[in-house]
Nucleic acid binder design. Structure first.
Lengths: 228, 228
DNA sequence: CCTACCGATCGGTAGG
DNA sequence: CCTACCGATCGGTAGG
């Protein structure tokens, strides 16, 4: 272990600190830690301001880096966007699979749809929900060769809905062409990104804002025929 | 009438044309004609590429102007965006009012909703439908002082839906909290901007794409309880 | 991961 | 409405 050279002792107190700017500790430095921090910041800013309106400098400084440093972790700005979408979809897909798996084997199609819708609202509007809205609303900024991978994840995510909606259609609880109905249902849910505001932590006394449970209940009642 | 000066006769044939670059004819020049052309081009490009990804130079050259000329008609790029939204909403509101007025006085709430939905799809997806999608998806690019006017028009547009949805809710044909249900219905419709592709002019023999009538039928079946 | 930097693009303007 | 132009910003890179 090399200690500070004796020369340091001859300098004024303020200069006793290690020279140059302070070294980062191991935890701050190494790791995909910094890469993950960049992803989270990018997701947040891309969602709040849009991809084009967010500069890589914004992302860097909000992550505590200098302007050139994001390019050490990502080849370019589009690659950062694609990574946000990819990680977001991977996480959403994992959550969705877990939500379905937790259902009892004899769960009804309606209960299955409820779980899917509830999970979807969570992924869109819950905590750490910046990734999927970015995916939904920043498609066009991807390079053509990046679209395929994200589309595959999105298709896998939507595939879980198909048998549930088919069953509901077969039993007469869901009306209208199933393909179009699915697109409209996703529209109804995804659009919530535009208007939903979570209720404040401390509930006010007046009219309260809707919770994700409220949204789920309303959606099921709106789309399905059987009252329940 | 002043004819070309005699000196012109002494110049080579090529120079007999009026000097300088050719004057525009009255029709090309004057008018809010050019202003309207800018609006239409801007709407189209803003929709196709997004506001931030469209430069004022893109708009100018697609309208047949030089790069500085849009600023003769609009104070800045945001003012052009606001004008697109304003004109789009004015037109949509006029069409909606006409569609409602054309209904027979004894039209049922379901028929009224059908007319509203059908008109909305027309405004979103029909010919000359670039303005409203821009309004829906480029909100955040407006300056704060521009938001009010557009919001007022949008509120007026949505106000026509409220009594119809209330009547449907009262008669049990529409379930779920009416405020949330309205937001979800608009989401289902507005999202079509993301995926709808009109059927080709010459109908193919295979599976055909949905028409706006198909969408309207599916939406009504999806949202309302009574089969009809 | 920082420093220093470059080339390109862009919104906007003066003056005609 | 065009010409000529400016200042600012931005994505990205070389070299350490």
């Amino acid at each position: 272990m090399t200690s500070a050279s004796p020369v340091d002792d001859m300098l004024p107190a303020a200069a006793v600190r290690p020279r140059g700017r302070p070294r980062k500790t191991a935890e701050e430095r190494d790791d995909g830690n910094r890469r993950l921090a960049l992803l989270a910041t990018a997701a947040r800013l891309f969602r709040q301001q849009g991809f084009d309106a967010t500069s890589t400098r914004d992302i860097a400084s909000a992550t505590g880096m200098r302007s050139g440093s994001p390019f050490y972790h990502f080849e370019n700005k589009q690659a950062l966007l694609a990574a946000v979408m990819r990680e977001g979809m991977r996480s959403a897909l994992a959550r969705q699979t877990a939500a379905i798996t937790l259902l009892p084997a004899q769960a009804t199609p309606r209960e299955r749809l409820s779980a899917l819708v509830r999970n979807h609202f969570e992924v869109l509007l819950g905590p750490d929900s910046d990734f999927i809205p970015v995916m939904l609303y920043e498609w066009r900024r991807l390079a053509p060769e990046q679209v395929g991978e994200v589309t595959a994840l999105k298709d896998a995510y939507e595939a879980a809905w198909v048998p549930v909606l088919s069953a509901l259609h077969a039993s007469g609880q869901l009306a209208g062409d199933p393909v179009l109905a699915r697109l409209m249902i996703f529209g109804a849910l995804n659009w919530a990104v535009q208007w939903y505001q979570p209720p404040p932590a401390r509930a006010g006394r007046g009219r309260h804002r809707a919770t994700l449970d409220d949204l789920t209940t309303t959606a099921l009642r709106l789309f399905l025929k059987d009252p329940e």
